[in-house]
Design a protein around this nucleic acid. Structure first.
Lengths: 115, 115
DNA sequence: CGGGATCCTTTCTGATACTG
DNA sequence: CAGTATCAGAAAGGATCCCG
């Protein structure tokens, strides 16, 4: 019997974006892929504090959502590269705007932390 | 030769924004405050799926970060209103851009869900 | 009505070890 | 090097009760 999965309904398109790029790490990963393909080891160095396991998991989710593509080169040792798809690249303006806001707001946050 | 365009500070600034508006609920709360003050009960209806306890907690964090202000009217029954500060309002373009991306991407996501 | 305190369940995360 | 499995501790979330 053919069972068709029922797509989840969204009240607001914002839910889609939060599902795809929400969370603690994905904005950073997307940001660091902006200038071209990166290997997992490189990314782990760039995304400060992320563990190997969580990075792999996040990459898989991004790949499943077609935000990035994964290319495996059959070399020894193994080499893998991730890069943004067209959808992923369209997410860059969002990330860059977040970065801009953060730069503007940061002094204010630090002032509060001291007080 | 690859020249790094991104100053070290870049990373930190994105961290600031993720800390302030990251997570599962805050983009929605900010979005729903865009047209003026709202009461907690109203917000809970708008932010689908959020519990009373978590909403109160998120509002407190946003208030602590000076993204929203809280006004309590000494009436019976009690009335509270939250509204965006100037910092919070400057976050709206980010949220609206996220919403725009989601609207563009949504058909693609639903197509994948069926397959 | 708004929100804090408590209890309990679910989810997330990091460390480690192991496979190809 | 890349990625998965497992386990234990941390964190997030829901339900409920209570007070102003």
């Amino acid at each position: 019997m053919y069972i068709r999965k029922i797509p989840r309904l969204y009240n607001c398109s914002l839910e889609v974006t939060v599902e795809v790029m929400g969370g603690k790490w994905k904005p950073f990963i997307i940001c660091y892929l902006q200038n071209g393909p990166k290997r997992p080891t490189e990314l782990q160095k760039m995304v400060s504090g992320i563990s190997k396991r969580v990075l792999a998991q996040q990459m898989k989710e991004l790949e499943d959502h077609a935000i990035i593509t994964k290319t495996v080169y059959a070399e020894v040792p193994l080499r893998t590269e991730y890069q943004l798809t067209a959808f992923g690249q369209e997410l860059l303006p969002v990330v860059l705007m977040m970065e801009k806001w953060g730069r503007m707001y940061q002094p204010h946050l630090e002032k509060m932390r001291i007080a």
